[in-house]
Design a protein around this nucleic acid. Structure first.
Lengths: 212, 212, 212, 212
DNA sequence: ACATACGGGACGGCCCGTTAGT
DNA sequence: ACTAACGGGCCGTCCCGTATGT
């Protein structure tokens, strides 16, 4: 599934970082599919061909593995996915935002419709029962919101976004709304939910544009 | 066989069955707090003072208990919470919707901020791993969406909502967006996220109003 | 090994108390041989033919099983072994004590020489790491000391034991000394150590006798 | 092969090997606190800052480390503690013995009351399950007994100890009794047990003195 | 209709030891 | 001589479900 899992196979040479990465990606995959608590350590290990000893060497316990998955895997995926191409200086920031929204409805792999958003899944499952998880997940949500907020601020600087728009609140609204849509898409098993939702969001953004 | 077996044949009859209700509510509470899979059958039972025999007399297994919680507990809670007071004939439907949104930001108990939305929690956790759960949860989401959609349609009938508004898509957008906000509120542990979000949604609804 | 383990075999009928007793005696046996921490729950279960569910039903965890072994098995064994026949009204208390000491050097099964004293084993292993164990073990040691002390007091009442003897301290001395001897017997694998030691103790008791 | 391999051939030569000593003392400490089987190899290593490689370079396995602890650490500690000052030619051997007993009740660090006697702990835990341990522990007990026995013999030679005293049996009695007292002190968490016990032992020794 | 007793399996943690590498 | 990476196994806990009994 994960790209580098393909090159895993046997591995007889010592490559600690590669091993750690293998564990992280296999854990990500398992956690994404089943949730953190239902994720089986043995399943993760059998995906990699490694054993308990290896895992115990790289991570003190299952929770620490989960934390690392958030920080070192999910965070990067999310920010690349939702903030990628936002800061293109040749494009009007507001249009860039709208373009991101409209493009991200695609979901070519269909994973999103099947398993939802890996970050939000962890948030919903773990936030109430593990504060460490909550904080780390939150950090990524913050970065995401900041990315959106800065795009809106650049829009204000350029003059395409109204001055009285609360960029922070709007960014938070967008993020929450997107996560809600992904969640309902998963529940409905209907990708039109996502497309229609993002379209409405993009239209809403048009509301914030300065009249010319 | 036994004399009272006659009245027990079909459960759907108006025989409230206090034991069954106890189990349902205790299960709801436990599932709401820990999630369905992490909810322990023994913990549910110890809340009621009942034992295994009682539970497995009323439900064939844990999943069936969960399904019943969705159908007989959560569904009612959700629809009362989000559709209550929507069909007041003396109020403009659009205003009624906006009022609902603005009121529901209150969350007096704080449970929403702690544990999120019981329906969406189940949706996010169980939809990918149990299709029965998914379908039952979906049924409630449909009813909720329908409630919002009908309000918008009444708005169109009355003339306060633009004719070209896609009421179904808009209702779906609202529901998803609300769930997203509840989720982020839980993750952030900050109820302002919810309030600000619903405010923006209410403002957005204003966009759909006919100009007079 | 244990007397009632013989009648265990299949057991299809429900007999909760018998099951509990089986677990207790099997646990005692295993703990006596390997020590508490090295005692394997699975080994205990396979001795009884029961499974995890049965154990988990009767005891919340391994520690609780251990505590119960101390209170309900070891205590009885010890007091019967070392206080049995002490309060015979027809015998001079001091002589009764001496007789007990001289008889107990026998160790017909040889278990004592192999595995030592079950009470002291638990005391030495668990006292520093589990205060619950320590307290329960101590309670039995107290009862033992009290038994010896009361015998000495009866000796004083009868006039065979000197008035200035500190019965409590002497009883504690005897108990400690006996346990030391059992321990060294186990270490030496030589039962003469025990016999010689108890002989010296009996002689020492003669020192406490009133001159006539 | 390597140049310095020449001097490394036989370990018994006076090459203190600081690393080996570190391991021994850290192992002693850990074993003293938790017992041999509960002592974690990793815990021992983390105390020294060394790693697995170092340990398994110096010792073939955990048991061998334990044996070395008995032979090279515990034995010295014990003999110094209980035989130190016994052979002072200016003091009556019997009085020297009594002085040792009365002094050793002090236990300034309190370790004895907390963790007991390191030698006896190992004896009680390991004697029944590992014959190698038993034999090595026994060797130290023998040396201890011999020390006491020789003191009594010197007493006989000087004329302060009765001729008919069985010095070997008496020495064994003393050692066993002392160990019993240490054990009960640990169990009771009450150092008076030790003091009172040693006082009685010293008084008992007075019984062996020749009348003048 | 419900309580009690028990079956049986899976999971995370931990731990000793070995091997590759320096 | 020593570090770091990893193998592989066992243990206690916990948990869902069934069967017996009332």
């Amino acid at each position: 599934m994960t790209p580098r899992a393909a090159s895993a196979k046997k591995r007889r040479t010592r490559a600690p970082d590669a091993t750690r990465d293998q564990l992280l990606w296999a854990a990500f995959d398992e956690i994404y599919r089943r949730g953190f608590r239902a994720a089986s350590v043995d399943a993760i290990l059998s995906k990699t061909g490694l054993t308990k000893g290896a895992l115990y060497h790289h991570f003190p316990n299952k929770s620490a593995l989960g934390y690392a998955v958030v920080d070192e895997v999910v965070r990067g995926l999310m920010l690349r996915h939702w903030l990628g191409g936002l800061d293109d200086p040749n494009v009007d920031p507001l249009m860039a935002l709208q373009r991101v929204l409209r493009n991200r409805g695609a979901d070519p792999t269909g994973n999103e419709a099947k398993f939802g958003c890996p970050l939000n899944n962890l948030a919903q499952e773990m936030a109430p029962v593990d504060d460490q998880f909550r904080r780390r997940v939150n950090a990524t949500f913050d970065a995401w919101r900041d990315g959106f907020a800065r795009a809106l601020e650049r829009g204000q600087a350029v003059g395409s976004v109204k001055r009285d728009v609360d960029t922070g609140a709007t960014a938070a609204f967008l993020v929450a709304s997107i996560e809600g849509a992904i969640g309902l898409t998963k529940t409905t098993k209907n990708r039109d939910v996502m497309r229609s939702h993002l379209e409405i969001l993009a239209d809403y953004l048009e509301t914030l544009r300065t009249r010319r």
